[in-house]
Amino acid sequence: MSSFLGKIIRWSLRRSPWILHFNSGSCNACDIEILAALTPRFDVERFGIKIKASPRHADILVVTGPVTKQQEPRLKRIYEQMPEPKYVIAVGTCTTWGSVFHGSYSTLDGVYKAIPVDVYVPGCPPRPEAIILGFAKLFEKIERGED
């Protein structure tokens, strides 16, 4: 990828990042906080962030949950279906190490065991402000040009 093209892609990503929300076996608490971040009180749509239904339209994958064994192949498939360049935000403490589900026979204990992660947002569940901060950190990362 030429540096000029890379610059354009980074600029467009920064202006309208479309997200895909994927629940990999979370308890719904993080999911309702992500949804709350989209609604008028917090309103992440002012940054151009929009939830998309198809992985082929999305730039950022927002994963919640400790990744159950049932969801692991689906998570990988969805990650592969997303077009490059793609980023992953892991929301919630159980995405980092499993949290209360650590040691269960049916979870992977962390999203990083299935797919690479760019930004972690810890908290059980993180507040919508924390999720917005996670997005801001990712934008910084994109502007610096890191993968």
Binding site: G25, S26, P66, T68, Q71, S104, Y105, S106, T107
Partner: peptide, 11 residues
């Protein structure tokens, strides 16, 4: 169903 099975009863 079963995608969110986390083995809670065993935990």
């Amino acid at each position: 169903i079963g995608y969110v099975h986390r083995g809670i009863e065993k935990l």
